[in-house]
Design a protein around this nucleic acid. Structure first.
Lengths: 280, 280
DNA sequence: GCCATTACTGAATCTTGCG
DNA sequence: CCGCAAGATTCAGTAATGG
């Protein structure tokens, strides 16, 4: 049974009804400054920290001591320069009591095309990892990856017959060997994530791929844990939580996005019993 | 003719003798806070900005208005948290008059191994791009990259010398050949650079690969321009400048590093006429 | 010359233990 | 109780060797 609760409203208000220390992971991609103007009233870059902080205070309250807060954000260019509101936000969040544990990089392999005279295409975003304590829940084995090139080049040199043998006769010695390689040679990832963006999901502009929240959900939560996304948008975090059997609370100020998310979840639901969407 | 001038001393002092608006590019990897303690006395993270600012003031003075300042840096972990001195440095440099034009990411493909309970291996560093003006010199075509697998596999077979020759002597037949060969499928890069660190290279342990300064030197300078590295270390920036036919001023507080750099340059010199190393 | 194999080395960071 | 030193852990390149 997987419970997904969706609420329409400003997370600053909605979160008042969520108890202290109840959430295992907050994963969110907030409205970037001056983006989605029509939605959040277009927060000015200079006012961004001021706007964010009271909401982060609620995040801090509802998050379990062993929980994690992952913030996907990237400063925009203002007047030819990168604006500093994200840097200021990090510093302000630390003053609020958060620990800035790590900064992961999302490398967007297929970033937005374009050409400018003073910069190249922007192919990365920040994934800021904040925690409440030095010790927190982390399940590193859940996101292990196949090993790098040397294994790949080796596999490449296996002829067709070898691959067939591996696939069809799992008992053969050679097949076993490969199986051992593939099974044993999982390594821990780094703090650089390589993932392509997904094209726009209907009404919503192109956002992050489902694999991105899935990676962090696997890393920082267990089954039946509770994930929170206070800026739901197209609902990708909720989809990821459902895919992995986690419960989820999603909040967005725009009813349209809540509806979109509900619809998206019902489309991928496989069994009536295992998904319970509640719109509050 | 390529002039490389090396000076031993604190760049804060040495730079006093360099005239205003005379440098086209500053590329440097300063001593990270609390690292290389034996060398730079180990600047404490909390004092880092304070230590850096007066030096940056000199950088600002000697840099041409159309020039660029590229700073390779990464905050270290202090007490389980990423320290904020780099963020504070960016904010302070802006107050000093710099424009924070862009932040490039260096993805270190072969980062240091290790395992910890609360983080993964650190596989990226910042390359902060500062300028004095909104308009500055940038030659984007010089760093175009081949696209697709065929080009990559073919490029791999070109030796180091071939690439250097292609880069420095654009008139040569061989260089032209490669240019024609690859000319078809060249695309502009993004702000994410994928390069392996160079480890254990014949005695001198170069931290960043020569390709890294080369990339920025090609991007922000022309032939015969002047490059400055105020924290020379193993001299990689000077080597890159020499490879590309740029003049260079290198400064380091440790005489040992000046000697190392001089030695390294003389080893790769191919012709007495084209390299002139002056140790001041 | 072309592969495959081996040895080696990092701007790392957490934990433990000693003074 | 705090600061510092040493140990344990871990992976992708690059160069050198061998067939």
């Amino acid at each position: 049974m997987c419970n997904i609760e969706l609420y329409c409203g400003d997370c600053l208000d909605v979160l008042q009804n969520i108890p202290d220390n109840s959430v295992d992971l907050i994963f969110t991609s907030p409205p970037y400054a001056d983006r989605r103007k029509n939605v959040y009233g277009g927060i000015h870059p200079d006012k961004y920290v001021e706007w964010f902080l009271p909401r982060a205070e609620q995040f801090l309250r509802v998050l379990k001591p062993t929980g994690s807060f992952v913030l996907n954000i990237k400063e925009r260019v203002v007047n030819g320069e990168r604006h500093t509101y994200v840097l200021e936000l990090i510093i302000a969040l630390r003053k609020q009591g958060w620990l800035w544990t790590e900064e992961y990089i999302w490398h967007k392999k297929n970033c937005y095309p374009g050409k400018w005279p003073n910069r190249f295409r922007d192919a990365w975003e920040r994934l800021l990892h904040f925690t409440k304590q030095k010790k927190f829940k982390m399940f590193q084995d859940e996101v292990k990856e196949p090993i790098g090139d040397w294994a790949n080049t080796r596999l490449k040199h296996l002829g067709k017959n070898d691959v067939v043998r591996f696939n069809s006769r799992s008992g053969s010695g050679f097949g076993k060997n490969i199986a051992n390689w593939l099974g044993k040679d999982l390594v821990y990832p780094t703090n650089v994530l390589h993932m392509a963006t997904e094209c726009g999901y209907r009404g919503h502009s192109a956002v992050f791929p489902v694999k991105l929240p899935e990676w962090f959900i696997k890393l920082f939560t267990e089954k039946d844990d509770l994930v929170l996304d206070p800026f739901v948008g197209s609902g990708t975090t909720c989809v990821a939580a459902y895919n992995l059997g986690r419960n989820c609370i999603g909040i967005d100020i725009k009813e349209e996005y809540i509806d979109l998310t509900k619809q998206r979840l019902e489309e991928i639901r496989k069994d009536e019993e295992i998904l319970n969407v509640v719109v509050g």
